[in-house]
Write a protein that binds this DNA or RNA. Sequence first.
RNA 1: GGUACUCUGGCAGAACGGUUAUGCGUGAGCCUGCAAAGCUUAUACAAGGGGGUUCGACUCCCUCGGGUACCUCCA
Length: 461
Amino acid sequence: MKIKDTLSNLEHTIDISNKVRIYLCGVTVYDDSHIGHARTIIVFDVLRRYLESQGAEIQLVQNFTDIDDKIIHRANAEDKTAAQVSTTYIENYFRDFDNLHVKRATDYPKATQHIDDIIMFIDKLIKQEIAYTSENGVYFSVSKFPEYGKLSKKRIDQLESGARIRVDEKKKDPLDFAVWKITDEKPTWASPWGRGRPGWHIECSAMSTKYLGDDFDIHGGGRDLIFPHHENEIAQSESCTRVRFAKTWMHVGMVTINGEKMAKSTGNVKSVRHVLDDWGPNIIRLFCLAGHYSKPIDYSEELLLENLTKWRQVETCHYELINADGAESEKNDTLAKLAREFDQALDDDFNTHLALSSFFQLVKETNRLAADEKLGKENSQAIKTELQRMLDILGLVVLEISDKQRQEIDKLVSDRTQSRQEKRFKDADKIRDELYDMNVQLVDHKGKTIWMLKEPIRADR
RNA sequence: GGUACUCUGGCAGAACGGUUAUGCGUGAGCCUGCAAAGCUUAUACAAGGGGGUUCGACUCCCUCGGGUACCUCCA
């Protein structure tokens, strides 16, 4: 598989013969996650599922930033401790992302549980004179890392002209950034330089190295992290270890609303919980995978609605396959071709849009065979296997049905069929309405009626 | 101001130096007791503007313009 690396702008081949080590910058837990977070995390979830389907072993590490100014502010505002705030939003994170069918990462390290590692890391930087102490903290000296700016393609002199210099900070250079902040504001931890807390970027340097080694395969996150976060991580890690930090950098485009970045400051945030209530996990996942991961994607009801239509087709396909008993169509190689195209699309810089187009072609083709009464048992078994493989990679899940529900529905459906045969159409339609209210869609074929249990989507009218 | 990305049909959105992308939508039809769902078929012949390279460019180069992001916390 090839991924376009942000740093070199070249396509890198991901070696899956050894364990693939991935570090994903997760969220700062001071509030509920929004759909922008969801996109990044879903992209990496599908990436991971795809690589696993190709036989790769994956180690996916995703951090929680559980100490920072915003968390402290929220804690103060709500008269809680920072730990209470972060714990709450970590719980909410798992609630939301489990509901989105995101597979759990291998590890979810937290900054506050790696203070020792962070201190050791800073200590190394100081010993090498790459970081220096001042009265209010420890700073990384950007001038000691000549390659600073290589990820974000910025030049130090250009940055300096635009840099904001805070009066209260005792930096040698305005570009220097804090790796340790000395402060009395709780919570604080003891360090050789005084009580305080770590800077933001240092946790990812310390934790990624600890969990994945000095040099790992993929480092990812949202595009907005390229500068300064990932730039600073590179500076810290490469200064410290003297080896290349991550082999491949992969950045996910922003979710926008009316073309503007979704952000707390502009108030155009759609929380995962809220969107999940209206649309459910499958439609959100389809929406997040609709464009190339590196490009922005605009959130709109219209686009979600389009994906609802598509999802209904997938559900139809699923039930047509279950009920397949038509004449066997002659063998053709469409199935193998679409499966191959699906994989090729993902192989080529993770082109989920193209992969989805193969996926939907398979769905359409199957529904067409069903409509022509040409979907036989043997054929449908092969399609079912392939369709399920794709669904698993995409993390899409058709609504499960219990035996009790099934019996209940079967009963009503056969009552309706009886009524129709006796031309008691009013009775038949009454049952149909009843089923409709149970989210059961009837599909009247020529000789038989099949039904499907649709995922209830609140936004569906 | 600097840097990066981006500009494709009503909408979403790819690939590719020469082939219908695909999907949604829309029109018509099939099926049906009527619907729904599904299917069939038609429809977009598109490439921000202007130059250039080429036998041929949406695809490469130049230029002008629009948009977004980052340059401060940010997925």
